[in-house]
Deep mutational scan, measured.
Amino acid sequence: TEKEKEVKRLAKERGLSPDQVRELAQRAGFSPDQAKQIADEFA
């Protein structure tokens, strides 16, 4: 999704850790499970 792409782009730009990616995703409105899946891509 657009929102997911945006979260991943920000995460890459900022060099976020997987935990930070998960927090960012949840703040963007993703469920905890979705946020974990997104964060796992950065693990």
Rank of each mutant, 00 (worst) to 15 (best):
D19S: 13
Q34C: 06
S31W: 04
D33S: 14
Q20K: 07
D33I: 12
K36P: 00
K36V: 09
T1Q: 13
K36R: 13
K5F: 09
V7P: 00
Q37D: 07
R22I: 15
S17H: 09
R27K: 14
F30L: 07
A39V: 04
P18C: 05
E6M: 14
Q20L: 06
G15A: 07
K12G: 09
Q34T: 07
K5A: 14
P32S: 07
Q37K: 15
R14D: 10
A43L: 13
G15V: 04
E41S: 12
A43D: 10
A11L: 02
K36I: 11
R22P: 04
A39N: 01
L10Q: 15
R9D: 12
L16F: 07
Q34R: 14
Q34I: 12
K8T: 06
D33V: 10
D40W: 09
R9E: 08
I38D: 01
P18M: 09
E2V: 11
D33G: 10
A43Y: 14
E6A: 13
S17M: 08
E13V: 09
L10M: 11
R27W: 08
L24F: 05
K3G: 09
D40T: 07
I38V: 04
A25W: 00
F42S: 05
K12S: 11
K5W: 10
P32G: 05
R9V: 03
Q20D: 09
D19Y: 03
K36E: 10
R9Q: 10
T1N: 13
R9I: 05
K12W: 08
D19P: 08
E6K: 06
Q20C: 12
E2Y: 07
F30A: 02
Q37G: 07
A25C: 08
G29R: 00
D19E: 14
S17Q: 08
Q26D: 05
F30R: 01
S31F: 04
A35S: 07
E23Y: 02
L24Q: 04
E23G: 05
L10P: 04
P18E: 08
F30D: 01
L10Y: 04
A43W: 13
I38C: 03
I38P: 00
A35T: 03
L16H: 02
V7R: 02
Q34Y: 10
K8N: 05
V7G: 02
F42G: 03
Q26E: 15
R9T: 04
E41N: 08
G29N: 02
T1E: 14
G29C: 01
A28G: 04
Q20A: 10
Q34V: 13
E4M: 15
A39S: 08
A43V: 13
K3R: 13
I38T: 01
E13T: 06
G29I: 00
K5V: 09
L10A: 13
A43P: 04
V7L: 15
V7D: 04
R14S: 13
G29W: 00
S17I: 05
T1I: 14
S17N: 14
A43H: 09
G15L: 06
E4T: 13
L16V: 02
T1P: 14
Q20G: 08
A35P: 01
A39Q: 03
R27S: 14
S17D: 11
E4P: 03
E2N: 11
G15C: 08
R22M: 15
E23P: 00
F30W: 04
P18Q: 11
P18W: 14
A11V: 01
A39C: 04
P32T: 06
K5T: 11
Q37P: 00
V21N: 01
K36G: 09
K3W: 12
F42M: 11
R27H: 12
S31Y: 04
A25F: 02
F42Y: 15
D19H: 10
E4G: 11
Q20P: 00
A39H: 01
E4C: 11
A11P: 04
E13W: 02
A28H: 14
S31L: 07
E41R: 07
D40P: 01
A25V: 03
R27N: 14
S31E: 06
K36W: 13
V21Q: 00
R14Q: 15
P32Q: 08
D40V: 07
F30P: 00
E23S: 07
R22N: 12
V21T: 08
S31T: 14
G15N: 12
D33A: 14
G29D: 01
D33M: 08
L16I: 03
G15E: 06
A43N: 08
L24G: 02
R22Q: 13
D40N: 10
R14Y: 13
K5P: 02
R27D: 12
D19A: 11
E41G: 06
A28K: 07
P18Y: 15
R22E: 14
K5H: 09
G29T: 00
Q34S: 07
E6D: 08
E41C: 07
P18H: 14
E13M: 07
Q37T: 11
L24M: 09
S17V: 06
T1C: 12
F42D: 02
K8A: 04
Q34N: 05
F30K: 01
V21C: 10
K36D: 11
Q20N: 04
V7W: 02
I38K: 00
A39D: 01
A11R: 00
E2R: 08
R14K: 14
L24S: 03
Q26N: 04
E23M: 06
K36L: 11
E23D: 12
A11M: 01
P32M: 04
R9W: 02
P18L: 10
V7F: 08
A39K: 02
V21W: 02
K3D: 08
V21D: 02
L16Q: 02
I38R: 00
Q37E: 10
E13A: 11
E13I: 12
K3H: 07
L10H: 13
R22F: 15
L16N: 02
A39R: 03
G15Q: 09
D19I: 09
A39G: 05
L16M: 11
L24A: 07
E41Q: 10
K5Q: 13
A35F: 00
Q34W: 06
R14E: 13
E13R: 05
T1F: 14
A35M: 01
F30Y: 05
V21G: 00
P32H: 05
A39M: 06
A28I: 14
R9M: 05
